[in-house]
């Protein structure tokens, strides 16, 4: 094991897949000569050249549609959105073109493509640069949605995403880019669709994904001090959701809290709780709960922003209330 920040884990996944498949290419704004707005693609242009690390104009609808067409033409595009907020400009090409074509063509035309970039809030970038699109994409048949937390998962899941014959939404988090985690030194990938138990416990199940896992783990430490043993599940993939792992855990712990940084209504938590109440209702000793961003566009001011995003204390308090 070596330690790498999430940023370079993502870069390494792309580089390794590009080395093994000449049809994989990266396209997006500032991915090449600038080496990535968040330096995720650092060094790639010097290795692969500007034919495969394609700097685009600021033209999200255009280059997203172009990438969909390129995938029809036999390529495997990795589309980087500088942040996922800008993908709203291109949402038609993601949903109507990428996600639906395989079905509408009766299985004749598949779209192998990865859409990736930082998702959700960062630090004081306000509403238009802080949107968490997780729940939105999990609503769409024909898409896979991945949201890793640590470096090893980011690398292993991105490699699977690039090899996947379907369109994959890959949600990163700007605040995790600098976080350092262990990464296996072997050649590996992690299958899409499997959750990971980050910490096992016996009294309550906490599910989360992406940066929310960090807060959930911290909350579990606080709970430990109160003699509450929390099991923390990193969902890793949001669609298809690994409900088996969640149900199995809830049957053991009999309590559930879902944590997400997106909004609560029609969110990931709603989906998880619905699954759990329908499949493990009799095992629940307390109402399943969810914690999410407050229902407002994310404000700019640091103190207001902090109020909106669930942290370890919010999670800790909510969990404790269930006993």
């Amino acid at each position: 094991m070596s330690k790498f920040p999430v940023r370079s884990a993502i870069r390494d996944a792309m580089a390794e897949e590009m080395r093994s498949n000449p049809n994989v290419f990266l396209i997006g704004e500032e991915v090449g000569e600038y080496e990535g707005a968040y330096k995720v693609s650092q060094g790639l242009i010097s290795e692969f050249g500007n034919q495969r690390i394609v700097d685009t104009p600021i033209t999200e609808a255009g280059f997203t549609g172009l990438a969909v067409g390129a995938s029809m033409g036999g390529l495997r595009p990795i589309v980087e959105f500088m942040t996922w907020n800008f993908a709203f400009q291109a949402i038609d090409q993601i949903i109507n073109s990428a996600a639906k074509t395989y079905y509408m063509s009766g299985g004749l035309v598949n779209i192998p493509i990865v859409f990736r970039g930082p998702n959700g809030s960062a630090l004081q970038v306000a509403a238009q640069h802080s949107h968490d699109l997780s729940a939105l994409f999990t609503n769409i048949p024909g898409l896979k949605v991945v949201a890793p937390y640590d470096s090893a998962d980011a690398k292993g899941l991105l490699k699977s995403a690039i090899r996947d014959p379907n369109p994959v939404i890959f949600l990163e988090n700007e605040l995790l880019y600098n976080e350092v985690f262990e990464v296996p030194e072997i050649d590996y990938s992690i299958p899409i669709g499997s959750a990971n138990i980050k910490k096992s416990g016996s009294d309550i199940t906490i599910t989360s994904f992406s940066r929310g896992v960090h807060a959930a783990l911290k909350a579990a430490e606080l709970l430990e001090k109160e003699n509450i043993s929390a099991e923390v599940i990193d969902l890793r993939t949001l669609r298809p959701l690994d409900t088996n792992t969640i149900i199995k855990s809830v049957k053991k712990t009999n309590r559930l809290v879902s944590v997400e940084e997106g909004w609560m209504s029609s969110g990931i938590g709603a989906e998880i709780i619905s699954e759990v109440t329908s499949k493990a209702f009799d095992y629940l000793d307390a109402p399943p709960e969810r914690i999410a961003a407050l229902n407002v566009p994310l404000p700019y001011a640091s103190n207001l922003e902090k109020l909106c995003i669930p942290d370890q204390d919010n999670i800790f308090k909510l969990c404790r209330r269930l006993f």
Binding site: L75, D92, T101
Partner: peptide, 29 residues
């Protein structure tokens, strides 16, 4: 696809960047 026909798109104008992508792929390959 056997006849290199790529749709058939219901959203007005959406086929234009996709067609541009088909040209991108030809050039790339």
């Amino acid at each position: 696809p056997k006849n290199n026909f790529w749709g058939g798109h219901g959203i007005v104008g959406a086929q234009v960047p996709i067609g541009t992508g088909l040209a991108f792929a030809s050039k790339y390959l």
